[in-house]
Simulated assay, not measured.
Amino acid sequence: MVHPYAVAGFLVAVLPLIATPGASLALLVQHVTDGGRRQALPVILGTVTGLYIHATLAVAGLSALVMRSSLAFTAVKLIGAAYLIGLGIWTWRSAAPDAAPAPHRQRLPKGSDSVYAQALLANVLNPKAAAIYLTLVPQFIAPHRPFGGQILTLATAHALLVALWLAAWTFLILRASHALHTPRFQQAAAKATSAVLITLGIRSAVT
C-alpha cells in the first residue's frame, strides 16, 4: 500500500502533465462537439485504459526494456507519431464543408467503440506516458514493498485525476452547447483538433 502522502505528492507532480493539452483533450473536444456528452465517456475510458496498460507494462518491465533500447523507443515513438498525424489528417478531411454529402469520402468514425479505440491508441502509443511510470512513479514507491500494488494504487489515482480533468472539460464544452451544433463551429473545432493532433505527432517524431 502506498502512503497517502506519497499518493498526494505523485498527483501534485503529475498534474502539470495532465493539464498540458494533448491528444486526449483534442479528441474530447472533437467528439463532444460532434456527438454530445455521450462521446465523452469512451474518450475518458480509452485514456484511462491506456494508463493502466502503461502501469501493467511498467510492472512487467516491458516499458523499461523499450526505454532502455533506443531502437525500440524510436519505433514506438514513430508509430505513435504516425497514428496521431494520420488521425489529424482524417479529422481535417472530415471537417471539409462537402464531407457530409460526398458518399465516397471516409469520415472519422463516431461510434463509441471507435472513439474508445482512438483514445486508447493515442495514450498507449505515447512513449511519454510510459515514461511517467518509469521515471516519476518510482520516486513515490517504497522499495521494500511489492511494486505491483503500489504502482496499481498510483495508476488508479492518476486515472481518477485524468477522468476528473476530462470530465471538467466536458462540462465546459457543453456549457457552450448553443454554439456546438452550428456547422461553422463544428468545422472550426474539427480543424483545431486536427492541427493539435498533427502538431503532437510531429513533435513526438522529432523529439
Rank of each mutant, 00 (worst) to 15 (best):
N123H: 08
Q118R: 13
A100E: 11
I173Y: 00
F147K: 14
R145P: 02
P101N: 01
W165G: 09
S112L: 00
H104W: 11
Y133T: 01
H144L: 08
A119C: 09
P127V: 03
P143W: 05
W169T: 10
A163D: 11
A155I: 04
S114Q: 15
A176D: 13
I141A: 03
F140R: 05
L152R: 07
A163V: 06
A119H: 05
T153E: 12
P127K: 00
I173M: 05
T153P: 03
A157D: 08
Q118L: 05
D98N: 14
F171N: 09
A96W: 07
A167G: 14
L154D: 07
P143N: 06
L134E: 14
L161W: 00
F147Q: 15
P127E: 01
A100W: 07
P101E: 07
Y133L: 08
Q150R: 07
L160N: 06
F171W: 10
P109L: 01
Y116P: 05
R105F: 04
A131T: 11
V115R: 09
S114R: 15
L161M: 14
N126M: 01
A96P: 11
V115K: 02
L164H: 00
L172G: 15
L152C: 01
R105K: 13
A129C: 12
L174I: 10
W169C: 12
L134R: 12
A99M: 02
L164T: 12
A100G: 10
Q150K: 05
L108P: 04
R107V: 08
V115I: 15
D113W: 11
L154P: 06
L134D: 08
A163E: 09
P109V: 06
A167H: 00
P127I: 00
R105V: 04
L120Y: 08
A163N: 10
A155P: 09
P103A: 05
